[in-house]
């Protein structure tokens, strides 16, 4: 049933910013930094979401997902590869046996401006093709028009079609205007059955910010206190450097703590982040600052 949205916590932007400034001023050094970087790498949903995506491109990115940087020992693979539904089969093929998940965007991504019927078919297609994670978008237009029931029912319907596949619900926070709306949308998604809530499609600016992520983590926290159920979190878009990724991890560490500090409950939707993490890891190993020429761009 749709949750009560009238008594939700409200957010004060200045206060949220102050808290975030505290996370960002944490100084992550030596081993804790290496630990953080490896963890961040293992949490990446390596993403390509372009009209020009081809079988070849998807193969390349899948190889990168499995072999981030072979000269580095003891580094994890990424968590998942995220593609459009039409590329799911290619990705499933390329990743066979790697343990890396295949995530597919669905539901008329990125705008979501289509009929429920089309969205469900879109989702079903991706699942049938072998996607084990579905990244759906909510209907922001309906949300902003106040049709919360519509948004809620849609998520419930998509969840049903997902079957065994994990459902990540994209709020597209860049279109939701206020932190209070972000909280409201998080609540709808969580109560409608989301396994993960996700900030952005990456097609709208601003994409993920620490502010909206903080509010979403807060919603997850309150839900856990109330029900004991853990929901995952995926900031996506704009997280391109190790430094930013570590700041997100500090926030995760200090807001939700150890149970969430793994790829089952936290993901980064990103592409260029991987190489930046790798450069940092190599720098730590060799002591030399790195050039991007030594890291494969797929």
């Amino acid at each position: 049933m749709i949750p009560n949205l009238d008594n939700l916590p409200v957010y004060d932007t200045a206060g949220v910013n102050e808290r975030i400034a505290r996370f960002c001023s944490r100084s992550i050094k030596s081993n804790s930094k290496l630990e953080g970087l490896r963890l961040a790498l293992s949490m990446v949903d390596l993403t390509t979401l372009e009209g020009k995506d081809t079988t070849g491109k998807v193969k390349q990115i899948c190889y990168k997902a499995m072999h981030p940087h072979d000269s580095l020992k003891n580094i994890p693979t990424v968590a998942a590869v995220c593609v459009y539904p039409a590329q799911v089969a290619n990705a499933v093929n390329a990743l066979k046996g790697s343990g890396i998940q295949v995530a597919s965007v669905a539901t008329a991504f990125p705008s979501g401006q289509s009929s429920l019927e089309v969205k469900l078919l879109d989702t079903k297609f991706a699942v049938d093709q072998g996607a084990n994670e579905i990244d759906m978008v909510i209907s922001r237009g309906q949300f902003l028009a106040g049709n919360y029931q519509y948004v809620f029912d849609e998520i419930v319907a998509v969840k049903k079609v997902c079957g065994q596949a994990h459902l990540k619900v994209i709020l597209e926070t860049g279109e939701l205007d206020t932190l209070d709306n972000v909280r409201k949308a998080s609540e709808l998604a969580i109560y409608a059955g989301a396994d993960f809530i996700k900030t952005s499609t990456g097609k709208i600016q601003p994409a993920a910010t620490m502010q909206v992520t903080y509010v979403m983590l807060d919603a997850i926290k309150d839900y856990y206190i109330k029900t004991g159920k853990m929901i995952g979190m995926k900031p996506a878009g704009g997280i391109s450097t190790s430094k930013i990724a570590l700041q997100y991890l500090v926030m995760l560490n200090e807001v939700l703590g150890e149970k969430w500090m793994n790829k089952n409950y936290f993901r980064f939707g990103a592409s260029s982040l991987v190489n930046d993490i790798l450069m940092q890891l190599v720098k730590a190993e060799t002591g030399n600052y790195q050039s991007s020429n030594y890291f494969s761009k797929d």
Binding site: R26, I28, K29, S32, K221, V250, N253, G257, E258, M261
Partner: peptide, 13 residues
């Protein structure tokens, strides 16, 4: 302890 942080930061003097 429900949300106890697990990632201990190294000393950063």
């Amino acid at each position: 302890k429900m949300f106890k942080a697990s990632w201990a930061y190294d000393e950063a003097p």
